[in-house]
């Protein structure tokens, strides 16, 4: 059996990654997924969080997806992300700031805000920070 599978990550703005990979690790709607070549067809939502690709030869690359869909075909894996970033481009300070702001808004009951939106924001920022943490662990 083939030891790699073609994977592409696209966001509405651009194509983030496309190439052969040995494994894809992403956070699906109901849990973490590890997908290897020859996986049965699968369709699932993606939660905000890191997407880890194990490239040919064991090298790892980490991306951040803020939600979207993941499709697995026997010969290809496609991640349709709402927004995706190369994890190296993530800005920790900005993420922390945004998280703090979202938390503040949530705790400030009087303010006239859209709770669903802020909660989603908060979740996204938390996921972004998780991704950054993961990269840091890898580097150490």
């Amino acid at each position: 059996m083939a030891s790699t599978v073609f994977c592409s990550i696209v966001s509405a703005e651009e194509e983030i990654f496309s190439g052969e990979v040995e494994m894809v690790v992403a956070s699906g709607t109901i849990g973490e997924l590890g997908i290897m070549p020859g996986h049965t067809p699968l369709l699932t939502g993606v939660k905000p969080g890191p997407v880890r690709l194990i490239l040919e030869g064991g090298e790892e690359e980490i991306f951040f997806a803020s939600g979207g869909y993941l499709e697995v075909q026997p010969t290809s894996i496609t991640i349709l992300a709402d927004t995706a970033l190369r994890a190296d481009d993530l800005d920790e300070a900005a993420a922390l700031e945004a998280q703090k702001k979202a938390e503040q808004e949530l705790s400030d009951q009087k303010a006239d805000i859209d709770f669903a939106r802020v909660a989603a924001d908060l979740q996204e920022q938390a996921a972004m920070l998780r991704t950054i943490q993961k990269i840091r662990d890898k580097k150490q």
Binding site: P41, L42, L43, T44, G45, Q73
Partner: peptide, 22 residues
Amino acid sequence: EEIQHRWDYIYEPDARQLIEGL
């Protein structure tokens, strides 16, 4: 052509919701 036979996805969590969104 390679995928003309009968097959289906595994849906997580729910086919209806997923397909609608997609």
